[in-house]
């Protein structure tokens, strides 16, 4: 084998070619994980992401034999200067019973801003049964300087949800729409971490 260098060169080239192809394919596979992950999570509801579409609830039957407590969390991304909260902490509903809650957001700054709320449902297995018929998270929200806005969420819990689920937490985080933040948001971040460091001293 080793005695014939010419054969070896050809064989080496074949090996290099195949392996480089594998490298490129795996590099691509890494990126393919992004859509794969989204599809996987959309099908299984694993990461607590709820549908971003208006749900269809015509065929849902009211199941008044059990109750589910739905709690609401409203939080802000640390770069988001708004005020944001839910008007109720929680409500208790029957599966299949439409319900409405109000959230309130206020733009404290002196400029018009666009925000986007990202919902998350916990436990993750409840996410695909938590159907929203109206939500401020379906669209971007424009708040003028100093404006306050009451934003409703209409939802219904699919009665086919597992009997084990007794409590559901719906959380929203408001983000500045990427690209519309003020320049120097990195500076804010690093000053936050400096404050933290000083705090621990």
């Amino acid at each position: 084998m080793a005695a014939e260098p010419n054969n070896n060169q050809a064989a080496n080239r074949r090996v290099i070619g195949k392996l480089l192809l594998t490298v490129v394919a795996m590099f691509g596979f890494g990126f393919a994980l992004v859509p794969l992950y989204d599809v996987f999570c959309a099908v299984t509801g694993l990461n607590g992401k709820t549908g971003s579409q208006v749900a269809d609830f015509k065929n849902m039957q009211l199941d008044d034999s059990r109750k589910i407590k739905v709690e609401f969390l409203a939080s802000l991304n640390e770069q988001m200067p708004w005020e944001f909260k839910a008007l109720q902490d929680s409500i208790t509903v029957h599966p299949g019973q439409p319900a409405k809650v109000d959230f309130i957001a206020r733009n404290k700054t002196g400029r018009d801003m666009i925000g986007q709320a990202i919902p998350s449902v916990s436990p993750g297995i409840a996410a695909s049964y938590f159907q929203k018929t109206e939500c401020f998270c379906f669209t971007e929200q424009l708040l003028k300087a100093g404006e306050e806005k009451v934003m409703p969420v209409l939802f219904i819990i699919d009665p086919s949800i597992s009997e084990d689920v007794h409590e559901i937490t719906l959380s929203y985080t408001f983000f500045i729409k990427p690209g519309t933040e003020e320049a120097g948001s990195r500076v804010i971040t690093s000053s936050v971490s400096k404050t933290l460091a000083n705090h621990t001293k």
Binding site: T22, V23, F31, I118
Partner: peptide, 30 residues
């Protein structure tokens, strides 16, 4: 051969998230 390219993907996504406005790992951008 199988996994070093995946590490390269992870850091490349970080690179573009940090410098080129992508949001692979940023919930604000989906």
């Amino acid at each position: 051969i199988a996994v070093m390219p995946v590490l390269a993907t992870a850091v490349t996504m970080m690179l573009t998230d940090r410098n080129f406005g992508t949001s692979f790992f940023d919930a604000a951008g989906g």
